[in-house]
Structure formats: C-alpha cells, structure tokens
Design a protein around this nucleic acid. Structure first.
Length: 159
DNA sequence: GCCAACGTTGGC
DNA sequence: GCCAACGTTGGC
C-alpha cells in the first residue's frame, strides 16, 4: 500500500482564505503565486494526487489550521507566470522553460473549530512541526502522520 | 562564487 | 504596522 503523504499550505485569508476555496467550483483551485524554490519543488516533485493538506491561515487573526484539502492534480506550470497583468508575472519564465509549478487542491472540509497556533505551541507531539519553528517561513511544508492525527484530535475531527 | 544590498514573509 | 529572519539578486 502506498504511504499517504501529508502537507501544510499557508495562505493569507485577506488574499485567499478557506471560505474562498469553499465557494470555488468543485471547491477546487490552483495554488498560484508560489515564488519560492523550496515550496515549488515540493509541488513539482513530491506532491501526488490524493495527498492530504492542511490549510493554514497566515497573517491572520487567529493564526490557525482551518481545514483540510487534498491534492487534485499532477503538477503543471503556474499560468500566472506568463501573464503580464498578474502580480505573479515572471518575465524570466517562458512557456518552453517555465519556472513555477503548482498543483490543484480540493477542499476536504473546513474545521468547525480551527486549531489555533497558540494552542499547538503547547502540545508536545507538535514540538517538531516546521510551522512552529522560529524563523520558518516556508509556505508549503511536509507534515508527519503523527502531526496529522494530533491536529485532527485537537479539532475534534476524524482524520 | 562571494557577499552586500535589497525584497519578502509572517509572527507579534 | 514593525521588523527579524530569510531568500534572492547582481556587481565584482
């Protein structure tokens, strides 16, 4: 049996929050605008359809994991890099040599009770989470199966 | 290929 | 809104 992989993706709710995802057709969107190589590499090389993803609200009040998604496509070039009118336009990217890749994600569920960053800090099982490390700003990060379970437990949800 | 200057992220 | 911690860029 293939091992399920878990991830966490950040978004600022002022830009795109979980309610925006919920209102999209099929509750699916392309995760555009990632312009960090490490985060891109995760999407391009490691994410597979069916992988599970936490949706995290950054630069928000409250800071929290607000729900779950699943990867819903193979990686493909981020269209916004070719669009001069997009704020994510990258003049050094070409159709032949795209720089930026993304995947589609589909909402699994919005937590009735978001799991607050402040509460996660107090939990031993989450002490090693990248998200909680000082100075960590990676907007897409791997999550362990244990962390996946623990956060669901805190949310009062079945993993 | 070093590293100073600049730009960005994101908690606080 | 501030600013520390990072990442990237580009002159040399």
């Amino acid at each position: 049996m293939a091992e399920t992989k878990y991830w966490l993706m950040k978004s600022e709710p002022d830009e795109f929050g979980i309610d925006d995802l919920a209102s999209r057709e099929n509750q699916t969107t392309y995760w555009e605008g990632i312009r960090n190589y490490q985060a891109r590499n995760f999407m391009r090389d490691d994410m597979k359809p069916g992988h599970k993803v936490f949706f995290y609200h950054s630069r928000a009040n409250p800071l929290a994991i607000v729900g779950t998604m699943e990867v819903a496509s193979e990686p493909y070039p981020d269209p916004s890099q070719f669009d001069p009118s997009s704020k994510y336009f990258d003049e050094k990217a070409t159709e032949e040599k795209p720089r930026w890749f993304l995947v589609d994600v589909r909402l699994i569920r919005k937590f009735e009770k978001p799991v607050l960053r402040d509460d996660m800090k107090d939990v031993d099982e989450l002490a090693e989470m990248l998200l909680l490390k000082k100075g960590s700003r990676l907007s897409i990060q791997p999550v362990t199966a244990q962390e996946w379970r623990k956060v669901h437990e805190m949310a009062g949800e079945k993993p």
